[in-house]
Amino acid sequence: MSGKYQTLDVNEEAQPLEFKSFLGQPDAAVEPAPAATSSRRGYTTDRPVSTSFWQVEHYQKWFDVDTNTVLMRCLMSMYPIDSHLTGPEGPDLYGPFWTLTTLILALFVSSSLASSIASYLSSEPTDYNWTLLSVAVGLIYIYGLAVPTGIWAVLQWSGVQECSVVECLSIWGYGMTVWIPTALLCIIPVPLLRWGLTLLAALISLAFIIRNIYPILATAESKSVRLFVIVFIVLHLGVALSLKIVFFSYYVAKPIG
């Protein structure tokens, strides 16, 4: 008898006890939610879930990369056999921006060094043309930032849905990586070498861009969208030629030796 009463008592007591456990449950229910919606790597877990676009936190998800990831992507862009943006981490914006900025600096250093070497070898003093720096800033940022944004807009307009603006920026930004060593190697004042290096760099970066943008273009329903590739090729070769003419063309006034 008393044993049965006791079990009933326990059952009745269990309900107030369960009320206590509800206090713990919201924590357990909320806990996985930020982890799921926050960054892929789980570093910036204290970020608000929904952010408006003028907050810095809104853009943190595109800067959520490690040093190794960025270096690996830069290296892979010079060896464009495989599409590198298909990794689990998705495109980032750190790499493109600082690749372009480094390229500007490399162009500045190489052209100024080449001009001083040329003036030293031809033994006539020349001053560095400072406007080349602003030309480099304009050319590189327009081709690396404004053009991909424009291309993204055009692609959206022509019905390619699977294309994000970050992806476009990432493709064009990382694609310019190969120009950094090229710019530094073009200090060597040998015209044939410079032309060869420029051609090589143009082909490598073009191959990288086409390799990454073509699968996106192929998702469109109409086949004619793929003809955009021709526009990209022409645009890229034009930029390569202008880089060669503007920055890699300091020659010695008289032949060496």
Binding site: V65, D66, T67, N68, V70, Y94, W98, T101, T102, L105
Partner: peptide, 13 residues
């Protein structure tokens, strides 16, 4: 620490 170099690099630049 995995990304401290990414913050240092722009300063060097």
């Amino acid at each position: 620490t995995q990304r401290i170099l990414l913050a240092v690099y722009p300063q060097c630049l």
